[in-house]
Design a protein around this nucleic acid. Sequence first.
RNA 1: GCACCCGUAGCUCAAUUGGAUAGAGCGCCUGACUACGAAUCAGGAGGUUCGGGGUUCAAGUCCCUGCGGGUGCACCA
Length: 596
Amino acid sequence: MRVGRSAFCNCAMNVTFNLASELETALQDAAQTAGLEADALNTEVRTADPRHGDFQANGVLGYAKARKLNPRATAEQIVAALPEDLLARCEVSIAGPGFINFTFGADTLLDWLQKHDTVDHLKSGASAFYQGQRFVVDYSSPNTAKQLHVGHIRSMVIGEAICRMLSFCGAEVTRDNHIGDWGTQFGKLIWGYKNLLDENALQTDALEELERLYKAADAATKEDAATLDAARAELVKLQQGDAENLALWKQIIAISSSAFQKVYDRLDIKFDHEHGESFYRDQLARVYQELEETGLSSESQGALVVFHPEHPRFKTQPFIVRKSDGASNYATTDLATMLYRTEHFKADAIIVLTDTRQSDHFQQLWLTTVKWYAAKNYPLPRFEHVSFGSILGDDGKAIKTRSGDPIRLHALLEEACDRAYTLVSEKSPDIPEEERQEIGRTVGMGAVRYADLSQNRSSDYVFNWEKILSFEGNTAPYLLYAVTRIHSIFRKLDFDPATIETATAAAPETPNEQALARKLVGLAAVLNMTTEQLRPHFLCTYLYELAGAFSSFYSADKVLVEDEAVRARRLLLCARTLLVLETGLHMLGLRTLQRM
RNA sequence: GCACCCGUAGCUCAAUUGGAUAGAGCGCCUGACUACGAAUCAGGAGGUUCGGGGUUCAAGUCCCUGCGGGUGCACCA
């Protein structure tokens, strides 16, 4: 049933960035006006299948059901109470068992496009989502003494994208690289350094030698219990402040951190802090003390542990906060870290990115934190363990080199850029060599990043060069190509898309123009969803669909036509598509290109 | 043994967390460059959403169960 008419309205309208939230407010008010229990109505509006409209509200179904009302009749009551000015801009209909569908008129689409003309304007619209909220995001977090390998990439790439998205949406984001520089591996490494060091190798390639030492020491501790004890003793000495071990430790940190930095630079990742585990070493005593004082911890087999009796598993599976030899571990530093982030950073939310195998640990950490904070009356932040699956090889098992070693990240990125360069050289041999190199780097890095981001992080994924560097489908090259085609149009006209005159442009008309405009307006809803669930693949899917809508429009509706009015309105669409595509890709951590 | 995750087109993946006729890409088939970049676009074929029960206006999604795969479980992180 059609209730409103999409009448044209020439008055200047206050178009909001987030049309869905505008509808939600209107529904809430209408329910009130209609005399319904407005608070009990779920007014959530979601983006709809284009066949049904721009947005749909389904809350009436549940509301009517619970009260034994006719859902369609209830929907009609609400729709009848919607304000006139909304009905003038938006066609509202009731369909099926009681869905309320909303389709905005072309003039509203035009208003939105005119108003959201720069990154800053998009950003100020989006900032309503997380304005004033402090987020601490803990990602990358490698272990010192090991090189970065493929297994580290998801935390970095997904973590960085989440930071950028949240920041775009108004959050105050603190990036913290929680380096593993104080754990058991140092016992092994120091033992190895003292017993197995090859001085020459250390001079030639320090990082390589450290890695060899760690592996050799690790193997030795597995073979011999006495060696394991010796390695543990080295860790205890370090943690107690032994001068020799501290000096060694500092040397090791310096070597590995300079290697990490090279990869971070390459990936455009820059941390605000690198508070590794060692940073918390003098804050651990307080953790032990408060856990004991509040009665949360207990002694078990010589270790200090926390059990959670209400939990099916953690009632017997301990959360070990101090080892029987007195050394701290992951749990101890993580508890201290939690405290530091709440007290020092005053975090409203803490996000930690690690693979899904660490889920137990973070569940125990959180259960413990909740009780601890309650007992001490500390303000409890929101906490999210953003977990992700593993990267698999063609055999379906964790990816490795032929020799069984992990694939080094710098080598992987190098190969991606080389392969992309080769492809660019095939497709665009006329572009100068130096620029092709640069394009290769942008496409290669983008392809690796996008392949990781475009998939739901929860599942494992199979790493495959053909798929990652494929130039078809939901890939970085497809999106980058769409961007370059738009740049190409403006290059032809010889003007900057940011300076386009939009006031004279008319509303989108053809089916492809309208579909593209509607897609653009959907940005707000996608940002909301992707940051709410901390899943960048929603943004990827959106950008892919946007690029697809543009490609269809581009091939159906010629932009550079004689008719000035037609050309103006199509150029506006091009400019805004470019803006949203580039803004979205930058949010994901990709760079974009003028041509490729 | 206990617990968690996963099973969707031949393949790789989506599906706004319970919403309308389950969607894309690859591959296969048919079309479109004397048109702003064909790394593109338009169209076609392809499904008992692992099997079986259940919950309700509505189930790929929730509950129970069976099968298959993965992961974690005392001093690693």
